[in-house]
Design a protein around this nucleic acid. Structure first.
Lengths: 257, 257
DNA sequence: CGCCGTCTGTGCGGTAGCCAACAGAAGAAC
DNA sequence: GTTCTTCTGTTGGCTACCGCACAGACGGCG
């Protein structure tokens, strides 16, 4: 997506280091898609927060005091089964927000929100968000559309679980994660990926080994580097494309910024 | 009270039991949960429609002219993969509605809506629904809550796909379907169940055979009868309970009727 | 009644991913 | 550097589900 790359490049040039640590809220696509006046109303209430790897922003069933708009971080929405097994139902990065249950009316949600890639984000108190949402204007329209895109992602992930191979799922996950990151280097252990995909660590090792052998990725302890994005594209299942297309479709017409 | 079975038969024959075929709109829990004045506003626009087994109410990616509120029918929301394989992401019966993408803003959705159990329902033109929704009152609140419950169901189904056995999933599916039906007798072939669950027909045969052997269900060509609901409960995975609990939680506080 | 289409039962080989147990290796901490 | 933790690689057996092929059996229909 040229927008993201543009922003990244711009940031890297203009800023020394300070701005890198506290990126603009506009790096979040949802915030960036708001009309300028609407954004200005919210801006004073946006609070930059660091989001650390492994941090749990919201436990399953717990209410949230704030909603989060990741900029350089990625959050994983997970179900947790009774036997302790976990798995990702969707990811939230700079394209989205965390906390839709607030405006959907349920307040809580039975999923856990876990920081999967450390970075920065912005948060907004639930009160402010709800007020903005119920002005029935652009905020509501945008957030509902985002929610629909999220539903598609959840459904597609479920379908993918059922029908596609480990390797395909790994490729999907890598691509989706890559799209939310400024670089090709993911700080990520295989163990963590396994817990996201809801599979054994060994299965990830094997699939990643194949991709490495083919020269598509390389990795060392806790880092994965994507060498050949097209290579991933040629191994991934349709699910990646479907999810991306649906996000584009739903948020395209919502652009005003 | 074999209503559905009756419907299939009666439709072909004459219907002096016509009243059985046109149940009250209030049999749909969402409509019933609306405050009386709100419901009265909508009532004149509600149109009773038969929904026949196998009918496709909405093809993947196609816009809908109406939203549907099933009363005695059940609709299955399905993803369709490129290779033709299909699977259910969620079901919609008398507890819900079909067509959330209308008010979510996306207009279309990448899932197909297939009638899984024949029966009756009510439909409402999208225009009327949207007007009601944007009055920002009880309708919006209720529909957003329902949408959140649907999200939970989709997520839980995906998780269940990954982690639980055929038999557990079959029990979950039977219980969820049973809850939406007036009788214990499902008009349903194993082939159809298999396509819902996204598995082979033979796998369903085996799992159903086990349940039959244990005396939990009985069946004959195209019919499944649940003999022992508690038996199903003792074989089902947690997913069933989670979904039901979330529906109850989200729609309980919304009751005004 | 008998035919025939559809639904259900079963068997066999194949395989992807599970479970458990370890061995090696990279990096951090000292 | 040395130690120690944590991450990655590999093995072997196991099970659930797949794919295919076909037999039997129900029940609608002429």
């Amino acid at each position: 997506m040229p927008v993201v790359q543009g922003q990244e490049a711009h940031r890297a040039v203009v800023s020394k280091t300070a701005l890198l640590l506290v990126p603009s809220p506009l790096q979040n696509h949802l915030l960036a898609a708001l009309p300028a006046p609407t954004f200005s109303q919210l801006a004073p209430h946006l609070e930059a927060v660091p989001m650390r790897l492994g941090e749990i922003l919201c436990e399953s069933g717990a209410p949230m005091s704030h909603v989060y708009f990741p900029t350089t971080s990625i959050v994983s929405l997970q179900y947790v089964m009774e036997n302790g097994a976990a798995g990702e139902i969707a990811g939230v990065g700079n394209e989205g927000m965390l906390g839709i249950s607030l405006f959907m009316g349920g307040i809580t949600t039975p999923t856990r929100a876990l920081v999967q890639t450390g970075g920065m984000g912005y948060r907004l108190s639930s009160k402010i968000l709800l007020e903005a949402f119920h002005r029935d204007g652009p905020v509501m329209r945008l957030l509902l559309r985002y929610t629909q895109a999220l539903i598609s992602q959840i459904a597609q992930t479920g379908a993918c679980n059922r029908h596609h191979s480990m390797e395909q799922q790994l490729c999907r996950w890598l691509l989706l994660t890559l799209d939310r990151m400024p670089s090709n280097d993911l700080v990520m252990t295989q163990e963590l990926i396994a817990s996201m995909l809801g599979v054994r660590r060994e299965s990830v090792t094997e699939a990643a080994g194949n991709l490495k052998h083919k020269g598509v990725i390389s990795y060392r302890r806790g880092h994965i580097t994507v060498l050949d994005r097209d290579g991933l594209n040629s191994h991934v299942c349709e699910c990646y494309v479907v999810v991306k297309a649906e996000f584009n479709r739903l948020l395209r017409d919502a652009q005003h910024h």
